[in-house]
């Protein structure tokens, strides 16, 4: 135990026994919070923008760069607000995106490859971790959600594409396929037609951004950064709202039914006694 730990525990005015209980509570909160963050981040991302992350050929230069940052920053912002407001911990965005990445890798391996036999090279997930680290770093340095939204969310949107470029570059290389030029990612996709293939052709393989990357990617990245700013503020607000600890008053009948008829206030329990007095 460090001198700092001792000083904190002394200020807490807890007994050694209560310090043990408090540490147990810390661990339980961490476990519950981790499952919650993992679940909510994944279901939110999955059903708002999942298609663009499921497949390597859908990781295009127009929608992927736009949709993934704006669908992931929403829960990152909400959890950042919760952790910052409740615990002054600048870890919400990183926790959200790290657990999301863990969840997606597990599913890609066990379901996409393990159940449906798609190759992992087709379903490898993208990552938003770099943007999340920057978002949390700016929050802890500025201690302001306003500044974090303005600069952090901008960088979050801008950094997504370069952060993924390292592993994506190989898939964007041009190859010849039956006399036509295509990308390696598209070539893998041609071998495994999916229910989403018609939509891929309708949505993605159209427009004027039909290149292998290059300048259109930055157009998309800047648009993503622009949208991320507004969504960050909106979902920070949702996180703050979620920290509302309100109890609504109930009638005497309800209290009586639940064995709390003689209650004098809304929050406190019954008379507090030393251990062993009653159980």
């Amino acid at each position: 135990m460090t001198e700092n730990d001792r000083a904190i525990l002394k200020v807490s005015e807890l007994s050694p026994q209560a310090i043990g209980w408090s540490r147990t509570l810390d661990l339980l909160i961490i476990v519950v919070a981790a499952f919650l963050i993992w679940s909510v981040s994944h279901i939110s991302f999955l059903l708002l923008g999942g298609d663009w992350d499921f497949f390597i050929d859908w990781k295009d230069r127009q929608y992927w760069i736009l949709i993934i940052p704006i669908t992931t920053i929403i829960m990152a912002a909400s959890f950042q607000a919760i952790f910052w407001n409740l615990f002054r911990l600048p870890i919400g965005a990183t926790a959200s995106l790290l657990l999301l990445l863990l969840g997606t890798w597990i599913v890609r391996y066990h379901s996409w490859e393990g159940l449906a036999y798609f190759p992992i090279s087709l379903v490898v997930p993208g990552t938003c971790l770099m943007g999340a680290l920057v978002l949390d770093a700016i929050l802890v340095l500025s201690r302001s959600w306003l500044v974090t939204g303005m600069f952090g969310a901008t960088l979050y949107g801008l950094l997504f594409y370069p952060a993924n470029w390292t592993y994506m570059a190989g898939y964007f290389q041009p190859v010849m396929n039956m006399g036509d030029m295509t990308s390696v990612a598209d070539l893998i996709g041609y071998v495994f037609p999916r229910a989403g293939t018609p939509e891929y052709i309708r949505i993605i393989e159209r427009g004027t951004l039909r290149t292998f990357g290059d300048t259109p990617t930055w157009v998309s990245a800047f648009f993503a950064a622009f949208v991320c700013i507004f969504l960050y503020y909106l979902f920070w607000g949702l996180g703050v709202l979620a920290c509302n600890a309100r109890f609504f008053p109930v009638g005497e009948r309800f209290k009586s039914l639940y064995g709390a008829k003689g209650a004098k206030d809304q929050t406190a329990g019954g008379p507090v006694t030393q251990p062993g007095a009653s159980s």
């Binding site: 639940y258 064995g259 006694t273 009653s278």
Partner: peptide, 13 residues
């Protein structure tokens, strides 16, 4: 359910 919460000890709570 506990039908007498008003007399609950702190330890139980």
């Amino acid at each position: 359910r506990d039908r007498d919460m008003d007399n609950m000890s702190g330890e139980t709570e």
